[in-house]
Computed example of a mutant assay.
Amino acid sequence: MISVFGSANMDLVAYTPVVPKRGETVTGRAFAAVPGGKGANQAVAAARAGADVAFMGAVGDDAFGPVVRETLGSAGVDVSRLRVVPGSSGVAHIVVDDDGGNSIIVVPGANGAVTAPSAEDLAVIARSDALLLQLELPMEAVVSAARQARVPVVLTPAPARELPRELLDAVDLIVPNEHEAEALTGLADPREALEALLELVPEAVITLGAEGALYGSRAGGRLRVPAVPVRAVDTTAAGDTFVGALAVARAEGRPQEEALRFAAAAAALSVQREGASTSMPGRAEIDAALR
C-alpha cells in the first residue's frame, strides 16, 4: 500500500495558444475544472498504476470538496482520512499553452489547515510500503509526517523552497524536476545537482521532461533513463504521475532501472492528455507501453 499525505485542489485550467504576458489579454480555446493538487494527483497516479492507496489531507466545505473526494474515490483511493474543514478547498489556476507548457498559481485553501498527522493517520502510514509527501501543505505538517512515518519517505520538493534539515534527515528519496533541483542546490547542471542532493538524502531522481530522468544513490548507483518520445498536450501532471508510478514499482520490488522506465512510461502517457487526474494512465496502459 502507498500512503499520501498531501494537498487536494480543484484545478481551474485555461487552454490558450500562448501564455499571456503581464498586462496582456489573450483568448483561450478551452476551459476545464479538474480535481488536482500534487498530493491528490500522486494518489490517483499510484492507484491507477496498481497500488492500494490511502490519502490524508483536507478539502473545504464548499462545492469543490465533494467533487475532489469523489474523484479520488472513483480512482480507487481510500479517502476515509480526508478531512473537511470550514472554508474554501484548495484551488490551482493553470494556464496551458499549445506546446503543453503551463504556469500555475496555487491558492492553498483547506490545505493550509492541515496539521501533523493524527494517530489514526500514522497507523495507516505504518502499514504502507511508502509515504509520499510534497510541499503544498504547511511545512510543519510535512516535517511531522516525515519524521513519524517509520516507512520509506518519498518527497517531491514542490513548490521549491528551502528544506529544513529535520525534513531532509527523514527523507529516503527526493524527486525534484530540473528547476526544483537547481533551486535546492544552486547548480544548473542536473548531474552536478544530483551529486549535491545525494549529500542531503540517500537517493534522488531528477526528472528532465523530454530528456528523461537521472537517478543516483549514496550506495553508488547512477542511472539515466530516457523519456518516451511523444507529443505533449498538457504536462501539468507529468511529474506527479512519474512519482506515483515510481512508488508503485519500487513497492513491488522492481529493479531501479525497471522502476524508472515504468514511471517514465506512465508520465509519457499522461502528457498526451489534457488535465491532471484525468490524464493519468491505468496499469494495463503502462504495461502495454513498455512492451
Rank of each mutant, 00 (worst) to 15 (best):
P66S: 11
F262Y: 15
A116E: 14
V13C: 03
R261I: 08
D240W: 05
A251G: 15
E257Q: 15
F64G: 04
D172R: 01
F262N: 02
E285W: 03
A30Q: 06
V171R: 04
R48D: 01
T27L: 14
G112I: 12
A268R: 03
A123K: 12
D98S: 14
V151P: 05
S279T: 10
R191H: 14
A54D: 00
G112N: 09
S74H: 12
S7N: 12
A247Q: 09
E203W: 02
V142T: 14
R48L: 13
N111G: 08
V59A: 11
V91G: 00
P202M: 12
K38P: 12
K21H: 08
E182A: 12
A113D: 12
A51K: 11
T16C: 14
L163A: 07
V243N: 14
D240H: 04
F55G: 07
A116L: 11
A181I: 00
V205I: 15
R222I: 11
G87S: 04
V124E: 12
F242R: 02
L82P: 05
P86E: 08
S277F: 06
L223W: 13
A46G: 00
V19C: 09
G36E: 04
A210Y: 01
R127T: 15
S74G: 13
A181V: 03
A193N: 08
I174A: 03
V13D: 01
A63T: 10
D287Y: 02
A75M: 04
A126F: 07
R29S: 11
A268C: 08
E24N: 06
R261M: 11
D61V: 07
